[in-house]
Design a binder for these strands. Sequence first.
DNA 1: ACCGCACCCTGAGCGC
DNA 2: TGCGCTCAGGGTGCGG
Length: 256
Amino acid sequence: MTPPARLRRELRGRTLKKLDRRGKYLVGTTDCGSRLVLHLGMTGQLFSSEAASPRLLSATARASLAPEEQGDFRPDSHTHLRFCFDDGGPEVFMRDVRKFGKVQLLAAGEASARLDELGGDALELDGDRLFGATRGRKTAIKALLLDQRVIAGCGNIYADEALFGAGVRPGRRAARVTRRECVALAEALRRVLARSIETGGTSISDYVAPDGRDGGYQDERKVYARAGAPCYSCATPIKKTVIAQRGTHYCPRCQK
DNA sequence: ACCGCACCCTGAGCGC
DNA sequence: TGCGCTCAGGGTGCGG
């Protein structure tokens, strides 16, 4: 975590030359070669000053502001960063209620163990590579999917959805998942993520796009946060358990 | 090397 | 109305 004063000092006057995504990290490179690394954690939001959404307001702010007053965003106590640009474009805010997000400025040439240890990107996950990563691993297949050193960019919702798509129980020991199942799992994860990107992401509690709009994937999820509701394939109630300290949802009939 | 767990932090929703 | 409890999309650091 880089202190705000240092961010101010070292970013002022710099030009952002490029912006990359590495798994769940956003990496901006400046004209002097330094890199700004952002991670949104659980409740982090990155958005334009022109964005308007009830998700960008606390409950009390929502209650006290009339809908027509909920226009251009005003920083509140959960707003930790404001980027101002001199090209006339809107400002960019980072807001994060739970403060699990991270902001780190790396000097030119400075390495980051976190970034360097990231596995291959989830969007291009290869089934055979996943199979290789599961060999000799006693941990649950879901825990492995969430390990960013194995797959960069897979989060809890998408792990549950991919496991459902592939018909694999989240608690199975990774080493017991077959090559065929790993191929299906990789394909399911790529498909789930591609579809979530198409629909703009999953807005269940905090997520908003940079323009403030909700995503649509919450309407397409099959198991996540559907405990007790009927499976869309077989009508068996979806079960919920805990794996790797994360809420885990699956169909006890469709997933073996 | 690997594994499971406590912990970081704040707010929403629930039962009483 | 308010209290206390549980839970939440992520990651780190520790002990075994």
